[in-house]
Write a protein that binds this DNA or RNA. Structure first.
Lengths: 211, 211
DNA sequence: ACCTGAACACCGTTCAAGT
DNA sequence: ACCTGAACACCGTTCAAGT
């Protein structure tokens, strides 16, 4: 139908109307510049220039700059959740193996997406975070809860509520990844220290008399 | 000497020349607006307006906006180091007590300075962080190293290099504080979970057969 | 529906000039 | 030494108008 017209329009006047999905293009390009030049250097006008649309065009898809940043953070959370979920799918049944897989996935994601991660966390300071964002972080922390409660069922993890057992595991996981991603831990140490951190976590959540 | 002249000048023409220490005033006011409105809302021009100087005046003290943010981060690290050092001074000798004091100090600081903390960590992404900043973070991580190695000397902490024993403790401490500060951990849980996190850390770094 | 182009208020940075 | 005031290039946001 009018798909052909649209294609023709795109070929004959590539500057007048953007290709099909400006929204997605904006997000993709925004993440690129985030990676290359940091959050501070991200400008809506430059983004529009890069994509060959007018500087006002982005406002159709994101009501303001913050809305774009929020959407970017959401992409990050979804990606992180996916990576963590995949790590669990391939890790077998043993708690130790599953914990190892999750730590590797989480640390890997943080190292690969350091600036995006910064954005993801700073968004959380905003009390009016979107519902979608809340949901994304919920799904994410749920993966850790599932891991821990499965470990409790199989007797590999000490008893206790998620608050008592899951939170410390979560904290260690997150802290290590963050230290590595921000460079507070030198890369050599970050790499080499993973096994030790996992052992530390296993001792921390092992049942009594089984440390 | 000319102190009197300066004072007279300040009283008679409060708008023409700023009081003695514009640099300190800029930092103080910057931190206030950081707290009130977040990093994104920080503007050099508004800062200057607030302090009654011209918009170009700050450039005498900070070569650009990033330089002011760096200086602000440095203030944060120095404050954090001081708070942590004080916690150790009052905590007695037992490893457990000292660890408790440090965790409380660190978490407390993060909760009180959430936005500043964001700045402190995002600065670290910048590979060209200043020497003073490097030194500040070094002093800070050293406090944890001292705590751990003292614990090893008294037999309360398992043997092993700082990389092996100190890093996991550091990661857990940092991760818990960060989760609490970013609101990823609901405040009720963050408060109540502290003791459990400390117990987790103690199990993680206890000597073998003493968990 | 989606985008343009002009307009507005604001920003960071620089620099000659003032005291 | 420290600050001013004007200038420049850039930005986010809005809005009537175009297709």
């Amino acid at each position: 139908m009018h798909t052909i017209d649209t294609l023709a329009l795109m070929q004959t006047s590539p500057r007048r109307y953007h290709h099909g999905d400006l929204r997605a293009a904006l997000l993709a390009r925004a993440e690129e510049t985030l990676r290359e030049k940091g959050t501070a250097a991200l400008s809506l006008r430059e983004l529009a220039r890069d994509l060959g649309v007018s500087h006002a065009a982005p406002s159709r898809h994101f009501k303001d700059k913050q809305a774009l940043l929020d959407a970017l953070a959401l992409v990050g959370y979804e990606r992180l959740t996916r990576v963590m979920a995949e790590s669990q799918a391939d890790a077998g049944e043993a708690f130790r193996k599953r914990l190892e897989a999750m730590v590797h996935a989480y640390v890997g994601f943080c190292l690969d997406n350091a600036v995006l991660l910064d954005l993801m966390y700073s968004i959380k300071h905003d009390p009016e975070a979107s519902e979608a964002l809340q949901e994304a972080t919920r799904q994410w922390s749920e993966l850790i809860e599932v891991l821990v409660s499965d470990g409790q069922r199989s007797g590999e993890v000490r008893e206790g509520s998620i608050e008592r057992v899951g939170v410390p595991v979560f904290a260690t996981l997150h802290g290590y990844a963050d230290l590595a991603a921000t460079g507070m831990l030198p890369p050599e140490i970050a790499e080499h220290g993973l096994d030790e951190v996992i052992a530390f976590m296993l001792r921390g959540c092992a049942p009594d008399g089984r440390a």
